[in-house]
């Protein structure tokens, strides 16, 4: 008998009645997600973008609001300048970003182990928690979001979702990426005497460029 057989047999032996049909189990599981508004926090702001900014700012995320994507390079330049950083940037190898005019900034698509700043795209933002969603992919290396000290993320206002369940619903039945990550504020730790320190292993700074309305 394999460990798998032993474990499954022990589980079945502990159950008084036979396992219900799969559809019945699925119906019970679905019912556990009924009336989601009764078991999740209510937004304070009526406008999704305002709620997202409120939540994310509370965790130390900074914001810049831009009219369109063409404004991204200038906004990045401004950010680097404000923080006294060199005009160098690891760029997510996505066509939408490569198409922009990067004159004046030294961009490269490899992320160095001690990268100062990187720019990437978020697929969605979740207002309930102030989270940015990123997926791994051919043009989306995961390390781009973790190695740099300053992580700058482009988020389209129209891709904001109200709640965590709305993201789950978007992904239900879809092909899953290797990594789907909800990034909620800069990296931090309270492991030494409970004092909060930013930039534990991941980025110490998270800056969102929010595009359009």
């Amino acid at each position: 008998m394999t460990a798998r057989d032993r474990i499954l047999a022990a589980i079945r032996a502990a159950r008084p009645a036979p396992l219900p049909p799969a559809e019945a189990i699925a119906a019970e599981a679905a019912a556990l997600l009924d009336a989601p508004e009764s078991v999740r926090p209510r937004p304070v702001e009526a406008v999704l973008a305002a709620e997202f900014v409120r939540k994310a700012s509370a965790l130390g995320t900074s914001f810049d609001h831009l009219p369109d994507r063409a404004a991204i390079p200038l906004a990045v330049n401004r950010y680097l300048d404000t923080h006294g950083l060199p005009p160098a940037l690891a760029l997510q190898p996505a066509p939408a970003l490569a198409a922009l005019d990067w004159t004046g900034i030294d961009t490269h698509d490899a992320v160095a182990p001690d990268q100062t700043a990187a720019l990437g795209l978020a697929l969605w933002g979740i207002a309930e928690t102030g989270s940015l969603v990123i997926h791994s992919g051919a043009d989306a290396p995961i390390l781009l979001s973790f190695l740099p000290l300053h992580h700058i993320v482009v988020l389209e206002e129209r891709s904001l979702l109200p709640h965590l369940e709305d993201y789950a619903a978007r992904m239900a039945g879809q092909p899953q990426p290797r990594n789907a990550i909800l990034i909620t504020g800069p990296s931090g730790t309270t492991d030494i005497e409970g004092s909060y320190v930013r930039g534990a292993h991941g980025p110490g700074f998270l800056h969102v460029l929010m595009i359009g309305g």
């Binding site: 990594n179 789907a180 909620t184 800069p186 991941g202």
Partner: peptide, 24 residues
């Protein structure tokens, strides 16, 4: 656990690197 509302990184790991993926 911590009195926060959300952990900084909530990650779903689904299988190994896909063909063509940049890393993993």
């Amino acid at each position: 656990a911590t009195g926060g509302e959300m952990t900084q990184y909530t990650t779903l790991h689904c299988g190994p690197k896909r063909p063509g993926d940049a890393d993993g």
